[in-house]
């Protein structure tokens, strides 16, 4: 049991000392997952909104595909992105394999369906006549959508929380497309896997605590934003 306490102690030391490798891993994790979440929002918000508001024949098919996408296994995504970015793959000439960009691509594929699906749900929970009411008050299409987003801001913030949570904690895809290269593509989750496989439980626990702390801090901020809005 000593190694657990040792791990916690070491984590605190690593944080306090500001170990350059840990700091690099931490900021890379934040940067990669932050960018992936942002791109997922740019894709997912409009697509989810379109699916929620538009009426077209294959709508149910698309919604079921998005719902399936919400449960995509990260390793399957990792495999798909690896094949695409592999030197001999269709996008091999971009030379993105084993780069942070490759991890961002994989994480975006994981988070985008989550953001899309939850955006769709958030907007479908609003009164369906609200859209007509806003048009009936002279709103343009963009004004109508922005007003609906504002109206659904609490579940939409939950969407951001879920999107970020799904990528900051995934390991399979990051490992496969990033390669866990030191000072290059090593993020918190892949570093934990490496240290555990080396038997360095103390460092693995330390990294896990940092990961938890990081996820908690970001989610705390988003939750604060969400609840502040709900109390207004």
């Amino acid at each position: 049991m000593d190694f657990i306490l040792e791990g916690i102690k070491q984590a605190i030391m690593l944080l306090v000392e500001g170990n350059p490798e840990i700091v690099h891993i931490m900021f890379l994790s934040l940067r990669v997952s932050g960018i992936a979440t942002l791109i997922s929002l740019i894709i997912g918000l409009p697509v989810g909104t379109f699916l929620a508001l538009a009426e077209f024949p294959s709508k149910k098919l698309w919604i079921s595909m998005i719902n399936t996408g919400m449960a995509l296994p990260p390793v399957a995504v990792g495999l798909f992105v690896s094949i695409m970015l592999w030197r001999s793959g269709p996008l091999g000439n971009l030379r993105l394999m084993y780069t942070p960009s490759a991890i961002i691509i994989a994480q975006t594929i994981i988070a985008a369906p989550v953001v899309t699906g939850l955006t769709l749900t958030a907007l479908q929970q609003l009164n369906p006549r609200l859209k007509l009411q806003l048009y009936g008050l002279g709103a343009s299409r963009i004004q109508m959508i922005l007003t609906l987003w504002r109206e659904a801001r609490l579940p939409l913030l939950a969407t951001v929380i879920a999107g970020f949570g799904s990528v900051i904690s995934e390991v399979g895809a990051s490992m496969m497309v990033g390669g866990n290269l030191r000072y290059h593509t090593r993020v918190l989750t892949t570093a934990i896997v490496l240290e555990t496989s080396k038997g360095q439980f103390a460092i693995a626990i330390a990294l896990s605590l940092i990961l938890l702390l990081l996820a908690y801090t970001v989610n705390l901020w988003l939750t604060w934003l969400q609840q502040r809005n709900s109390q207004k």
Binding site: R129, L132, G136
Partner: peptide
Amino acid sequence: RRRIAMVMQEPLLMD
């Protein structure tokens, strides 16, 4: 639509 105003059965006020 900019020349009309619609009032529905439910008030449908924004939050």
